[in-house]
């Protein structure tokens, strides 16, 4: 008990709980995925409430079911999916700072809406950054995370927390900033140059009909079921893949490539979903109906800059 590091002790890891931050930079050319929090909006708010810098490491809890015990005085915030968060069995608010004492038990239930909850701690979880300057966990690569081996949280893991140096203010996110994850999701798409690979009728159905999020989706990519898209021509020469790229394989069912995507690939790409829309997509459960709408690069850049500047002040 004495030489255990200060932090949150994992009693139950849940379905999939991963340490995540803003992801890697400058290593994609080595074949390393980017990673990072899937819903940056919820993740960044958690850190913001606690006065952490943008990019601090937090816990991404997919499908809930995570139970932890605290062994120090600290502050946490739970944001994102509408889980029931309890401290010692008592329900506590989401999107707000919670004060914890040694011995407190924290539990996150399965979500009523949304998919991924974020648990941020004051100062951020203290793990050594790996490749690309990131602490993110990469299960497919077997890199990063608490033990630098890509493993999700396991029972008995201790998530190291910094000591709290002074009394911290209690804060909550204003209600109008808290998304309704039950609302129908329309995703903004920047059309790419390869759009001329698709006949007009394919674009017409892509933007007018809805697609269902397939259960065969993960942090690499979201598969969609809906009207098959016709493609002119075959595979392209492999090239670097952008975040949110909508690639269309031979079966015509689009795949949106996400944070843990492979770095290069050769399927034709219709365009890319904007990062702000990917934040919303990260909270969509399998079976969700998705619609797409075209946006301009200018508008998408303006929206993304607003987001980054707000959390990087």
């Amino acid at each position: 008990m004495t030489d255990q590091p200060q932090g949150l002790i994992v009693r139950k890891p849940g379905f999939l709980s991963l340490l995540q931050d803003a992801g890697r930079t400058r290593v994609m050319h080595l074949g390393l995925a980017c990673g990072g929090a899937m819903d940056r909006h919820a993740w960044a708010w958690g850190n913001q409430l606690l006065g952490n810098r943008y990019g601090a490491t937090a816990l991404e809890v997919t499908f809930g079911g995570c139970e932890l015990t605290c062994n120090l005085n600290t502050q946490i915030a739970v944001t994102g999916a509408a889980v029931t968060c309890t401290v010692n069995g008592e329900a506590r608010p989401l999107w707000a700072t919670l004060n914890l004492c040694p011995g407190d038990d924290i539990a996150l239930s399965a979500p009523q809406s949304g998919l991924r909850a974020y648990l941020a701690v004051r100062g951020g979880f203290q793990t050594e950054a790996g490749l690309g300057g990131s602490c993110a966990t990469f299960t497919r690569e077997g890199t990063g995370g608490l033990h630098h081996n890509g493993k999700p949280l396991q029972t008995g893991d201790v998530l190291p927390c910094p000591p709290m140096t002074h009394e911290a203010p209690n804060r909550k996110v204003p209600n109008h900033w808290i998304p309704d994850y039950n609302a129908e999701t329309a995703l903004d798409v920047i059309l790419g140059a390869q759009v001329d690979r698709f006949p007009a009728c394919a674009l017409e159905s892509f933007f007018s009909e809805s697609y269902e999020l397939s259960p065969q989706s993960d942090r690499m990519g979201v598969r969609l079921n809906g009207p098959a898209l016709e493609i002119n021509g075959e595979r392209l020469i492999s090239e670097g893949i952008s975040l949110g790229a909508i690639q269309v394989p031979a079966d015509g069912q689009p795949i949106i490539l996400l944070n843990d995507r492979q770095t290069i690939g050769g399927y034709p790409k219709l365009g890319a979903v904007t990062p702000r829309s990917l934040d919303a997509l990260a909270q969509c459960v399998p079976g969700s109906k998705l619609r797409f709408r075209p946006t301009s690069l200018h508008e998408a850049q303006r929206q993304e800059q607003t987001f980054l500047r707000f959390f990087n002040q």
């Binding site: 994609m28 020469i237 670097g240």
Partner: peptide
């Protein structure tokens, strides 16, 4: 933030 070379291309982030 990234420069990813491939056969005929260079992706810049």
């Amino acid at each position: 933030l990234d420069a990813v070379p491939s056969y005929t291309t260079l992706l810049l982030r």
